[in-house]
Amino acid sequence: MNTLAIITKIELKKLFQRKDSWLMFTILLVPILYSVGLASNSDVITYTGAGNITAIGFASAMFQMSQSMFIFNVILSAIVGRSLASEIENKSIRLYVNRIGVRKLIYGGKELALLIFSVFIDILLVLTSIAFYYAVLIHNPKVASGIFYDSNVGMEIVQIVCNCIFWLITIFLVMLMATKLKTLVCVGVYMILYIIMNLMSYIDGIKYLSPLHYVVAVSSNSPQITFSIILFFLYAICVGILFTHIGIRKIEKMDL
């Protein structure tokens, strides 16, 4: 097994052993509570969608809902911050320095593990949504159509993927911040940046710089949707490469 794979494996193990990482799993409560609420005709949870929803449509809606609940972004930024910033601060990153030697592998391994962790949570969110759609929501025929997908499936999958990509961008961004800032500061700065990104997404001209613009554009059926999707993919690739490159440069130069 190569060194990057070993670090990634260890980092994944650490992520699953740390209790704060488990907070991210509370995201699974979104489809659970929503499906239970709708199935029991709760007054608190209402469905305003056009027509009955499919299983994939429900999963996509749960992604959008989780994304709008800013809290999961904060939790993710705290997990990312702790993975790097806290280890730099308490010097436990030194466990790797001698034994690995090459610092870019340490940064890369940590980032890769976080990306895998995030994708794992996304997959769980899809599976939980589908499971609760069939186990619970299906009992409310006014909301659930009972079918797995319909003609909108392509767009719904794209919406899910775009939400996943936003979380990946969060990881790239907070990892970079974590080379310089402490965990709590990372979370604070990320929250401010999130608000700025949100505001930017409404301003013509600079909205293309905000990843939230693409998430919103993809979820609304605008005529330029294909263009937005392609642009968002390119945006994510550029941000990923650029932030990782800067992060590696920083960690290679710094005193640990």
């Binding site: 670090i7 260890i10 650490k14 052993q17 436990s92 990153i93 030194r94 466990l95």
Partner: peptide
């Protein structure tokens, strides 16, 4: 130098984790 560990896991797991680094 200021020995560093992952304090949320056991002593044995800490050593095992390090040994994994050397494959």
């Amino acid at each position: 130098i200021e020995p560093q560990f992952l304090d949320y896991i056991s002593a044995e797991e800490n050593l095992r984790l390090l040994s994994q680094l050397t494959n």
